[in-house]
Design a protein around this nucleic acid. Structure first.
Length: 850
DNA sequence: GTCTTGCATGGGT
DNA sequence: AACCCATGCAAGA
């Protein structure tokens, strides 16, 4: 207990004031590194930029701005950041300087940030808030954006780095330490040249100039697939992730905030928006001490080195990266609504008070202006910000779900610039190595690979086509990969496949799983996740080639694969895994059949008969199936997924596919009896529990079969029960209990069973969507067993019949595929589900390192 | 029947 | 637990 005599009464650091601190507020940073403790009044004056006016008015050192004659107290630490020394003598206030120059620090002064506190809260938002209705349609002062990307404000680290830039010299990126240190030194010496921003003031938009001179823009007109640079680096934003420029990160780790706001990540000879510069110099950088307003790092704009290089090619404009967002399926879909991260929208877009919002003018890399409606929806007690009308722009940029759109502002006008990066070129977030830089796709994270696979294989249709919906659905998987990435852990996994399991596996989920081949020469580790055994790989799997598995008599199980060149069918070992493309020459098992000229082992007729058990049901219903030269029905690409859904369970094997061409479900004609066409149209009456329509009967039958198999499997494989989760067992028991109920009718049992997945209690929910069910949490009652059960049904019975609804049908089945990817891959993993625990008679797939 | 719009839902963070 | 946001969905055009 201290006596009163030992109590130190702290007074305001302002000697003119001497008020008692209660409590002290932080003022400017002193040379000792400590902060001046101020009383409320002085701190307020300081934060409002009126400190010198208030307390130093009679002091010496006041000078006039050479441009606007504004009085600046030059001899004071409090105000030293408010002016720059002019080369010809005199001073200019920061405001005037901003009008024509990128700022450099006063050479006479140490970096202001050494002395400046974190941005006083009150100052942070006092920059211009008067957005015009159309951002970019005139001088649009940008709101002071809080630092959404960093919660830890390190004032000394907030120095902005203006960079010398020359029109003549498109200097390389400052990606090495040498340059960085040089750069740093020049910064401190104030030796950097001022760069005229006149170009920004010209009548034409900055982007027009950009068009003229930027190396990365080598083509005008619409975005073209031929223009890789355009496609991949739609708008390079002068920011680089610390992960992506490793050399630079040596600095970033020590000199830059760990959680770096975009403008602090600039590493190359990028140029900065002067307003921001001024903001920072004013101690008004985007440091924002409100963690609540912190933006998720995934929205932090990042660049790969090539992107940075692109932007650095022409330093004659100033782009400040704001944020970026990976397009979701919804964003990239035809609805044309791009959901904006709330924090970003509120920080970087004009404030809107009405849901109707404002039209927002945005310029793309081509200089083309788009007007989006920036608006919000009330959502719970919050808001959900969207940009409406983005479809044309998205399409023009040829963007798909998974691609990244970037928002930047150009020049001090704050013209809003929208760029993009294709998913295939998206930098790895949170990955220490920038695989994109190396152009080594194999090093990309699994989720990206899967995403690409998804985009390339599942959704080959071009954006903007009528297949957009299916594309959405397909791309959905990528977002789901992201959303559900945690379940399977960070490593790449492949579900363990035992030879005995190859012969019969179920379709859809497992079937699609089978498309994923284990990586070559890679020994997996085994993990069990949610009762399912996975092979886990460090590298990405290979999308393999589906084949037919045939029980050839009693003893021999064989696999049939089709040559990609001669289309002949070749017998291969049951345990052979084929790459996605396979030809006779790769038939190492049967050299006599390793030439395309070699005759087919079996006559087509015989083979067809052999395969008929598997194919017939499908071939009758696959209107769009290809006829291969030997007369065997081959389903194109992933078409087989929707098509497989219409097959009768228990009868099917996996038809071989190639992964090209259409993903369209064949158009069903009048009289088609397939299960898809049996559906009532959307909005039709729900199926009742005792409904005896074709659909319901089929579903019931399939469910019955499923149950029988499950029973059989359960008795046969005790191991399986060991690996299943308790919840799974609970489900199984539940199922068995119900199946043993003599009183309940079959339908009721099914109905009860379905109750687990349907909100409609007491009846079969034929109207339920598997995809919705799929959304059940992994730990939910049905979560683990769902896919198996789903296979019992195999499709959404309420899929529509017409073309559009076939699209929906496709989507749903693709979403099953998506769910596979979801399970197989996420941002950092590749997994392939082990088939070892599946019932022996459950269906088929292949495997072998390619 | 299709598209648009606005809100609700629910998984993820 | 609260919030975010991707997506579903129904009402209206």
């Amino acid at each position: 207990m201290s006596s009163p005599s030992t109590t130190v009464t702290r007074v305001c650091f302002n000697s003119i004031c001497n008020n008692v601190l209660s409590p002290p507020r932080r003022g400017w940073r002193r040379r000792t590194g400590e902060f001046a403790d101020l009383c409320d009044r002085c701190a307020s004056a300081y934060e409002e930029g009126k400190f010198c006016e208030t307390f130093h008015l009679s002091a010496s050192g006041w000078r006039c701005c050479e441009s606007c004659a504004k009085q600046i107290h030059c001899g004071c630490i409090v105000s030293f950041h408010l002016f720059v020394l002019l080369d010809g003598g005199g001073i200019e206030c920061i405001t005037c300087t901003r009008k024509s120059f990128i700022l450099t620090p006063n050479p006479a002064w140490p970096p202001p940030s050494l002395f400046l506190p974190a941005q006083p809260e009150r100052n942070k938002d006092h920059s211009a808030k008067n957005w015009s209705h159309l951002a970019g349609s005139g001088p649009v002062p940008w709101r002071q954006a809080p630092n959404l990307f960093s919660s830890i404000v390190q004032p000394e680290l907030q120095q902005r780095v203006p960079v010398e830039a020359s029109n003549k010299h498109h200097t390389n990126l400052v990606l090495d330490n040498k340059k960085l240190s040089d750069f740093s030194g020049r910064f401190l010496n104030g030796a950097l040249k001022l760069r005229s921003a006149e170009s920004l003031e010209k009548g034409k938009a900055g982007m027009d100039e950009l068009e003229q001179s930027n190396h990365c823009i080598n083509q005008k007109g619409n975005f073209s697939k031929n223009d890789e640079s355009m496609l991949k680096y739609g708008l390079a934003m002068p920011s680089v992730s610390p992960y992506e420029v490793n050399d630079l990160t040596k600095l970033s780790k020590t000199h830059l905030p760990l959680s770096t706001p975009p403008e602090l990540e600039f590493g190359g000879n990028c140029v900065f928006d002067p307003s921001n510069e001024a903001q920072l110099r004013n101690g008004m950088g985007r440091g924002d001490n409100r963690p609540k307003g912190q933006l998720l790092s995934r929205y932090s704009p990042r660049l790969t080195a090539p992107e940075l290089q692109h932007i650095s090619a022409d330093p004659n404009y100033v782009i400040t990266p704001l944020f970026e967002k990976m397009l979701s399926a919804s964003d990239a879909g035809r609805i044309g609504r791009l959901v904006l991260p709330k924090k970003c929208a509120e920080a970087y877009f004009p404030p809107i008070s009405h849901p109707e919002g404002l039209p927002l003018k945005v310029q793309d890399l081509q200089g083309k202006e788009w007007v989006f409606q920036f608006r919000f929806w009330p959502n719970n007690s919050s808001r959900m910000y969207v940009l409406e009308g983005v479809t044309p722009c998205i399409q023009a940029m040829q963007l798909q779900a998974g691609d990244i759109v970037t928002f930047s502002r150009l020049g001090r006008e704050g013209k809003l610039i929208m760029g993009f990066r294709k998913a295939s070129n998206a930098p790895n977030k949170g990955n220490e190595t920038d695989n994109a830089i190396n152009g080594d796709a194999k090093k990309c994270k699994a989720g990206e690979i899967v995403s690409m696979v998804n985009a390339d294989l599942v959704n080959p249709a071009s954006p903007g086509s009528k297949n957009d919906k299916s594309e959405q659905a397909g791309d959905k998987s990528s977002s789901r990969i992201r959303r559900k990435k945690n379940a399977l852990g960070p490593k790449i996994k492949r579900k363990k496949t035992g030879d005995g399991d190859l012969i019969e596996l179920k379709l859809t989920w497992e079937d699609a799983q089978a498309l994923i081949r284990p990586p070559t020469n890679h020994i997996p580790s085994m993990v069990i996740i949610q009762g399912i055994e996975f092979e886990e790989y460090e590298v990405e799997p290979v999308i393999g080639r589906p084949t037919f598995f045939v029980k050839n008599g009693i003893s021999e199980n064989v696999q049939w694969a089709q040559c990609d060149e001669c289309f002949k069918w070749r017998k291969i070992p049951i345990d052979a895994l084929l790459p996605s493309r396979w030809t006779c020459s790769e038939n190492l098992w049967y050299p006599q059949r390793s030439l395309c000229s070699a005759p087919q082992e079996l006559e087509t007729k015989h083979l067809e008969e052999l395969l008929s058990r598997n194919i017939n049901a499908a071939s009758k219903k696959m209107k769009g199936a290809k006829q291969d030269p030997n007369g065997i029905q081959v389903v194109d690409g992933l078409d087989r997924l929707p098509n497989l859904a219409i097959l009768e369970e228990g009868e099917m094997m996996v038809p071989a596919t190639t992964t090209q061409e259409t993903t369209k479900h064949p158009r069903h004609k009048v009289g088609c009896t397939c299960i898809v066409c049996s559906q009532p149209p959307s909005g039709g009456p729900r199926h009742k529990q005792n409904c005896e329509c074709t659909v319901c009967q089929t579903v019931k039958r399939r469910f019955q079969t499923f149950m029988l198999r499950r029973e059989k499997n359960k008795s046969d494989t005790e191991v399986e029960t060991d690996t299943r989760t308790d919840q799974q067992q609970s489900i199984d028991e539940d199922i068995n209990d119900k199946s043993g109920d003599k009183v309940a009718t079959e339908e009721e049992e099914i109905g009860k069973m379905i109750c687990h997945i349907s909100p409609l209690k007491g009846q079969i929910d034929l109207n339920s969507q598997p995809d919705k069910d799929e959304e059940l949490s992994p730990g939910s009652e049905f979560g683990n067993s769902r896919k198996t059960i789903e296979d019992g049904f195999g499709f959404d019975p309420n899929m529509k019949v017409n073309d559009n609804n076939n699209s929906r049908n496709r989507n749903m089945n693709r979403e099953k595929m998506g769910s596979v990817e979801e399970a197989v891959g996420n941002e950092t993993t590749n997994r392939r589900m082990s088939f070892g625990t599946f019932p022996e008679n459950a269906s088929s797939a292949t495997s072998t390192p390619q």
